[in-house]
Design a protein around this nucleic acid. Structure first.
Lengths: 117, 117
DNA sequence: CAGTATCCAAAGGGATACTG
DNA sequence: CAGTATCCCTTTGGATACTG
């Protein structure tokens, strides 16, 4: 019994890990923004603005900065005329792909469930 | 080409599904609350208050109500003295388990990544 | 124990206009 | 196109106290 991790301690660690994730991912828009970039691989500011239903340019700008600071996305300026900006997932950001897929699947099932009630 | 779902349409559906999920799950605390109930199977109000670092009783009360309305958790009053209340996941709520586990794993890796930088 | 009620400061976030 | 700046209302949410 002394050699195994006590169950309660294990749960505490799991809870902390979940909250660590949410520190970076919570907010009304972050997951949706990451999903947009994830599904399209490369995505421009105005594209994401269209993909994420309801977001304003101000919010998008702010959230993109936070995601960049947290090394989940990469911002690349293309020297076109006028300039365009591509957002891509970093390698670290790409590790969220499984979660995005799960959330997509869950969203579809959830919608069925709610309408089907 | 006409018989397959156009790729862009597919991505639009995926984006909508993600946003459907986030409509129910977003907010600073919901995922953490669900995780607490998920990992312990049954959990009382005061337990969750301790599990979710930083949440206030006011917020917990509010978020629990929303999760109950969305049929993700079930509230059961036990006629002890004084009364205790058990929160459990509904069958629908249990379908979030995969996502919770993924977020837990991701949180652990993310912490390593951030500290390791 | 499991909440509710009230007060109030701070943050969120939309609308609009503007810049390089 | 890709943002930034400003105005200003709305929502969030902590602290504290109270109830059954």
């Amino acid at each position: 019994m002394e050699c195994t991790v006590p169950e309660k301690e294990q749960h505490k660690k799991e809870m902390m890990a979940v909250q660590d994730s949410m520190d970076v991912l919570s907010g009304k828009w972050k997951i949706a923004i990451i999903s947009s970039i994830c599904y399209y691989n490369k995505r421009r500011f105005s594209d994401i603005l269209n993909d994420v239903v309801g977001i304003s340019n101000k919010m998008l700008s702010k959230e993109l900065k936070e995601l960049e600071v947290n090394k989940l996305i990469k911002r690349s300026v293309l020297e076109t005329q006028p300039i365009t900006v591509q957002y891509t997932l970093t390698d670290h950001g790409k590790t969220l792909q499984t979660i995005i897929n799960n959330l997509t699947d869950w969203g579809i099932e959830h919608r069925k469930k709610i309408i089907g009630d």
